[in-house]
Simulated assay, not measured.
Amino acid sequence: MTEGGKRIQGNTKQPRLSIITVVYNAAPLFEQYMANLTPYLSNNVELVMIDGASTDGTTNLLKTHSDKIDYWLSEPDKGIYDAMNKAVTYAKGQWVYFLGMDDSLMEGFPAMVQELQNANTIYYGKTIYYGKPFGKVYNDYFLTKLNLVHQAVFYPHIVFDKYQYDTKYKVYADYHLNLRLWNDKDFRFEYRPHLVAGFPEGGFSSTATDPAFEQERDMLFKKYLNRKAYYRYLNRTLGWFKTLIRVVTNG
């Protein structure tokens, strides 16, 4: 294990938000990432980076930028969501926000940080989604169509006292987490129309498959969303006749 950052050097703070980035062999992206991110760091916003023991020079870049990174760690992990679970334990912010190495913060990010007030509220904003600004107030049914864009979501740290990312879902563990949280009485979701981030097309979730999630998708929607949304989802995907059969046979 190798670690570093301002925290190790004795510079401590109690930020409102922790930006978390997990990384593996992303040295070509590092300088652009830091150039975008650095202006948004402050006493209210810290940066935590978790590296999966990269072999391409990423660790040296983490050392080089230790004066800007509040805490970084480099050691082997079991994949992206294992690294994200680990990262939360090192975050000191009241809220946590996950940003990829090839993502970019945008002009609405500081305003969103100021919105983070209610400790039980999961805030979400707007992103550049496939080249266009995207922001929408979600409901149960829309959540069957599209997961909340993870670059838009700001989770209270206490979410991770109750939940972790389930690492059996290799691509959609974040979708699974949002489903579990959606109607959890301990939390609520609130939309704010600030453009907080952009991300490139063809990212991890758009090119990889998640057989475990796809196999359980119907069950997860039924378990975590309201019945009206679930039946509308079935009608959209199966048609009314097969939906009727499913309702009669399975409830």
Rank of each mutant, 00 (worst) to 15 (best):
P28M: 09
N25M: 12
T21L: 06
Q32A: 08
P39K: 02
P28T: 15
V45N: 04
P28V: 11
N43W: 04
A53K: 03
A26H: 07
N25H: 05
P39N: 07
T21M: 06
G57S: 13
A35G: 05
G52E: 04
V48I: 12
E46P: 01
Q32P: 01
T38C: 04
G52Q: 03
N43P: 00
I50V: 04
T58Y: 08
F30D: 03
T58Q: 14
S42N: 07
S42P: 02
T55Y: 04
P39L: 03
V48G: 03
A27C: 13
S18H: 14
S42Q: 05
P28Q: 06
L29M: 13
L41G: 06
P28L: 08
I20G: 02
I20N: 02
N25W: 01
T55Q: 09
V23R: 01
Y33A: 03
L37G: 15
F30G: 02
I19L: 13
M34H: 10
Y24E: 14
A26K: 12
T55V: 12
S18Q: 10
A27S: 10
N44Q: 07
A26Y: 10
E31N: 03
L17Q: 03
I50Q: 00
S18G: 13
N25P: 09
M34I: 08
E31K: 11
L37S: 12
Y33Q: 03
S18K: 13
N43R: 09
F30V: 08
P39A: 10
S54Y: 01
T38A: 15
G57V: 12
L37R: 11
V45R: 05
V23T: 15
M49A: 09
Y24Q: 14
E46V: 12
E46A: 07
V48S: 05
A27R: 15
S42A: 06
N25R: 05
L37Y: 14
D56L: 14
I19P: 10
N43A: 12
L17S: 05
L41I: 11
P28Y: 12
M34P: 11
A27P: 10
L41R: 02
A53F: 04
N25I: 08
N36Y: 09
Y40S: 14
Y33G: 04
L47S: 04
V22K: 00
V23D: 06
Q32R: 10
G57M: 14
G52T: 06
G52C: 09
V23H: 03
